[in-house]
Amino acid sequence: MGALIVADAFDYVMQYVSRACGEEPICVHAGDSKRCEITRHPKYGAFRASATMIKGQPKPSRLWESMVAMGRLHDMRGNDKWRMIVLDCVMASLHGRSVRISRDLYVDLSDVRSDMFEAGLTIWTETVQGVPPRDVPVLMRKAAIRAAYQRATDQTRETVIERPEDFLETADTPELPGLKPSSIIHNTDPRDPAVAEQIRGERNGALFHKHNCMDAATRFHDDLRAGRRPDVISRASNAPMLARSSLLGSSHYYYISDFFPSFIGISAAAEALGITESAAYQMVRKGTFPCPHTRMGRSLKVHVPPLMHYMNIPDAIVHPDDVENGAAHASGLTKQWRVPRPLY
Rank of each mutant, 00 (worst) to 15 (best):
M1Y: 09
L4W: 07
A9H: 02
Y12I: 00
M14N: 06
E24S: 13
C27M: 07
V28Q: 02
S33K: 01
S33R: 04
R35N: 04
R35D: 07
C36G: 04
T39L: 08
G45P: 01
R48L: 14
A51L: 13
I54D: 10
I54H: 09
G56V: 05
G56A: 04
Q57M: 07
P60N: 08
P60M: 01
S61K: 12
R62H: 09
L63K: 02
W64V: 01
M67V: 15
V68N: 02
R72V: 12
N79Y: 08
I85Y: 03
L87Q: 12
C89W: 04
L94W: 07
L94V: 05
G96H: 07
R97A: 13
V99H: 07
R100E: 15
R103E: 10
Y106S: 12
S110V: 11
D111H: 14
D115I: 00
M116Q: 13
T122M: 11
W124T: 12
V128S: 09
V136H: 03
V138R: 15
M140L: 03
A148M: 05
D154N: 10
Q155D: 10
Q155H: 12
E162T: 08
T170A: 09
P174H: 11
P174Y: 11
L179A: 09
P181S: 14
P181W: 11
I184R: 11
D189E: 10
R191T: 14
D192S: 13
P193R: 08
Q198I: 08
Q198P: 01
G201Q: 06
G201F: 04
E202I: 07
E202W: 10
G205E: 14
L207Y: 05
F208H: 03
D215K: 05
D215I: 07
A217H: 06
T218K: 02
T218W: 08
R219L: 13
G227V: 05
R229V: 10
D231C: 02
S234D: 12
N238K: 14
P240M: 07
M241L: 13
M241T: 13
L242G: 04
L242W: 03
R244L: 03
S246I: 03
L247M: 04
L247H: 03
S251K: 15
S251R: 15
Y253D: 01
Y254E: 11
D258N: 12
P261R: 04
S262D: 11
S262A: 10
I264K: 00
A268N: 15
A268P: 00
A272K: 14
G274N: 11
I275H: 10
E277Q: 09
Q282H: 12
M283G: 00
T288Y: 05
F289W: 12
P292F: 08
P292N: 06
H293G: 05
T294F: 10
T294V: 15
M296W: 04
R298M: 08
V302D: 03
H303P: 01
V304Q: 02
H309G: 02
V318Y: 00
V318D: 03
V318N: 03
P320I: 02
N325I: 15
A328R: 07
H329P: 00
A330F: 11
S331N: 09
L333N: 10
L333I: 03
Q336W: 14
Q336E: 07
W337G: 11
R338D: 00
R338W: 04
R341F: 10
